[in-house]
């Protein structure tokens, strides 16, 4: 019984990463990095935390739980621990720092395993259907950010 559950989990992880974000933008909006942060919203609007929570959970979108535990989402199965827990992260970083971290974590740590969620170029052997696509759209980044900002 547990075996089947495990197998199902594994299939889920395999497909985590295998399906594209259907609504991702084809074009990256310009943004400015200053003092280790992107201070302005990518869309000019504030994100929707409730939507962002769903994006963070969704295995085909943010899938933040693949690597991060979030106590607020303890009703969700399978929190990874490849990255640090995101509990309290909004008290430790500014909104702009967190936006940059989600847009492209490699700007602060080029060796990180954390994917860049808002980037389309410079990829090696990208599968065709993801060409010109970012993992998340600008709006989805803002929504996830709004949710992460609730993790005080």
């Amino acid at each position: 019984m547990r075996k089947t559950k495990l197998a199902a989990g594994i299939i889920a992880v395999a497909s985590v990463m295998a399906v594209q974000s259907a609504f991702a933008d084809s074009h990256i909006k310009k943004y400015k990095i200053e003092d280790g942060a992107i201070k302005a919203s990518l869309t000019g609007k504030t994100g929707d935390a409730a939507k962002g929570k769903k994006v963070a959970i969704n295995r085909k979108k943010g899938n933040c739980l693949a690597c991060h535990a979030i106590s607020d989402l303890k009703d969700q199965p399978f929190h990874g621990n490849v990255g640090p827990s995101l509990d309290g992260v909004a008290s430790n970083y500014s909104e702009g720092e967190l936006r940059l971290r989600i847009v492209n974590a490699k700007t602060s740590n080029e060796d990180t395993i954390m994917p860049a969620f808002y980037k389309v170029d410079g990829y090696n052997r990208l599968i065709k259907k993801f060409k010109g696509k970012s993992v998340l759209s600008a709006q989805e980044v803002e929504d996830v950010l709004a949710y992460v900002m609730t993790l005080k």
Binding site: L6, G9, I10, A12, V13, V16, R59, N63, L65, A66, C67, P77, F78, H79, G80, N81, V82, I113
Partner: peptide
């Protein structure tokens, strides 16, 4: 870099 760590359920 990450053997032994959990990536979601794995």
């Amino acid at each position: 870099d990450n053997p032994g760590k959990l990536i979601r359920a794995n």
